[in-house]
């Protein structure tokens, strides 16, 4: 019996919706075990890994490959006993602490503190950008961030360049059309210009443009997918901070989610969660600190580092998407202010 120390609120609620059910082991890695539950994956992670939506974390470091758990094997989930069993190995989450991974919920629960000024937020975004450009893995989409040619384009980023530019145009227009909003900073109303009006068309285009990125790139979670996760993280951060409406964020999320079949199950599962604002804790922590009045550069960079550490290039690609959407907001914001 392996005790688990953490479970995401999303995983708890997902498992709670079923009683005793047999599922199958989708994939096994040294530090992660994925269980296929219908169209979704529940992941058990080894201690020290970041809690993300639909995940449970073991209390001790665990090598799942060495436990003899095999892909395709049966897996039994018993919510009443708070236990998941795969290949005679049981994972007990009865004492696990519950962690919220929905940024909208976490954002609404946070104790209200003084907010950073808009110019501080944008300058922090520049700090993160510089940090990612210096330290990120350039093998995925990172070159898309680079405007001075210091990071060379690779096969994947070259392929995605025009596609992400198209997506950016859609996002900017959708942000501009989010005209119900009064920003907490400026109290100015975002107003759509006449050419931005066809919002419905924009969402159709956006869905297509997400589709032209989903599944592209190296890695188990292709870089394009991680980029999308980053975009969605930024979008839901903006919604959580009241800078765009939740409705707009939700619609952008839907556009991304409609394309998950274009990638593999594991990666698609991350996009699906992100499309609802459900993100790993490290991303949420970073997002929250961006808007905190008293966040030092060290604190900000140490949070960015946690995200950057994901996988091989995944962290870099997520942050690239995050910065990309943040700049899109900045562009929309600047235009709206005029």
């Amino acid at each position: 019996m392996i005790k688990c120390s953490d479970i995401s609120a999303e995983a708890l609620s997902f498992l709670g919706a079923m009683e005793k059910r047999d599922f199958s082991v989708h994939s096994v890695f040294a530090h992660a075990l994925n269980i296929q539950c219908g169209d979704d994956l529940i992941t058990i992670l080894s201690k020290g890994r970041d809690v993300f939506p639909l995940s449970i974390v073991s209390a001790e470091e665990t090598d799942f490959e060495e436990l003899g758990i095999r892909q395709g094997g049966l897996c039994e989930v018993s919510f009443s006993e708070k236990r998941i069993t795969a290949s005679d190995v049981s994972f007990d989450f009865s004492d696990a602490g519950i962690t919220d991974c929905d940024i909208l919920i976490v954002g609404s629960k946070k104790i209200s503190s003084e907010k950073a000024k808009p110019e501080d937020v944008f300058s922090r975004i520049s700090v993160i950008e510089k940090f990612v450009l210096q330290n990120g893995n350039p093998g995925g989409v990172l070159p898309l961030l680079c405007t001075d040619g210091s990071v060379q384009q690779n096969i994947w980023s070259a392929f995605l360049k025009g596609r992400t530019e198209d997506l950016e145009k859609d996002i900017i227009r959708v942000f501009r059309c989010d005209n119900k909003l009064i920003t907490p900073y400026t109290e100015e109303i975002f107003r759509a210009s006449p050419e931005d009006c066809s919002v419905c068309d924009r969402f159709v285009l956006m869905e297509n443009h997400f589709g032209k990125i989903t599944g592209a790139g190296p890695g188990l979670t292709p870089s394009g997918d991680d980029f999308i996760t980053g975009v969605l993280a930024a979008v839901f951060t903006l919604a959580s901070e009241g800078l765009i409406t939740r409705e707009t964020a939700g619609r952008i999320g839907e556009c991304a989610a409609l394309n998950v079949k274009k990638t593999n199950t594991i990666s698609g599962s991350f996009i699906k969660q992100a499309s609802r604002g459900c993100l790993s804790r490290s991303i949420i922590e970073l997002s929250l600190s961006l808007f905190k009045a008293d966040c030092s550069e060290n604190e900000l960079l140490s949070k960015a580092t946690r995200v950057l550490d994901f996988g091989s290039s995944s962290g870099t690609d997520i942050l690239t998407g995050f910065l990309f959407a943040s700049y899109a907001f900045y562009k929309a914001y600047s235009v709206s202010k005029r």
């Binding site: 096969i155 392929f159 989903t214 592209a216 790139g217 190296p218 188990l220 292709p222 394009g224 274009k262």
Partner: peptide
Amino acid sequence: ALVGMGTDLNKEISHNI
């Protein structure tokens, strides 16, 4: 050398090169 998952877009990239 191209290493990745066999998604449609990765296949498209393989075709391109």
